[in-house]
Nucleic acid binder design. Structure first.
Lengths: 113, 113
DNA sequence: TATAGATTGATACGACGTGTATCAACATAA
DNA sequence: TTATGTTGATACACGTCGTATCAATCTATA
């Protein structure tokens, strides 16, 4: 298994994106690559996948970066919800309560109050 | 209780939006006001609330209309999920399965596969 | 019916967001 | 040291979005 640690030029080529775009996304807080001691950006597997999701939202759906922020936040909540949908979790009252909180979290993100 | 049926100029004033903006939102499929026999737009309570949500997403968060489309779709799913979170629904296997399908629906909307 | 006011659909324009090209300064490896 | 890549900043072209404008049509009232 490769470590899949990429510098910005390779990451950009793999993703089909411009290096400047990746830098701008970081400046806006959409991704947070780590840095080498010389302050060079290092992209992990997780950030590459996050950038692929962003690319789909932007290129295919036409969502702007403010919308990407919201959708990524919702995606994080959905990711936390998934294990709460198992029968073991749904059998416990605590699991049900946690699930309710996550759904309410999405409604707050959407301003549905 | 008032019927809360508004023509476009009153609806725009209530919402703090421009009538042309409401027409453009309809053309893009974000809202679907009914029409009088003379083809004048009629805004119901539900559409006013939908427009308030759109306005928050656009004005406060800076989301563009493509992002609003996605977020409204997710909001619809969340609305369908809410009754599935009751104990009565979660006690039935059918309710649990339906809940899982709705969550999966959101993941598809986000392209999380 | 006639008249005034509102709505409709279409077009156009200004402001803003976004991707990317460019640049000098710095980092890295040979 | 030299060559190549990265960093951060600036600038520009293009598309999106809100809204102003217009003639034609609808609606209500006199």
């Amino acid at each position: 298994m490769a470590r899949e640690i990429l510098f910005i030029s390779v990451a950009a080529r793999v993703l089909g994106m411009h290096p400047q775009t990746l830098r701008k996304y970081e400046r806006l807080g959409l991704v947070q690559p780590t840095r080498t001691v010389g302050s060079m950006r290092v992209y992990s597997r997780e950030e590459i996948e996050r950038l692929q999701l962003i690319k789909r939202l932007v290129d295919d759906l036409g969502v702007n970066l403010a919308g990407v922020q919201q959708l990524l936040s919702i995606a994080d909540v959905v990711e936390r919800m998934r294990p709460l949908l198992s029968d073991e979790a749904l059998d416990r009252p605590a699991g049900r309560r946690q699930l309710g909180r996550e759904v309410e979290h999405i409604t707050r993100l959407l301003g549905m109050s």
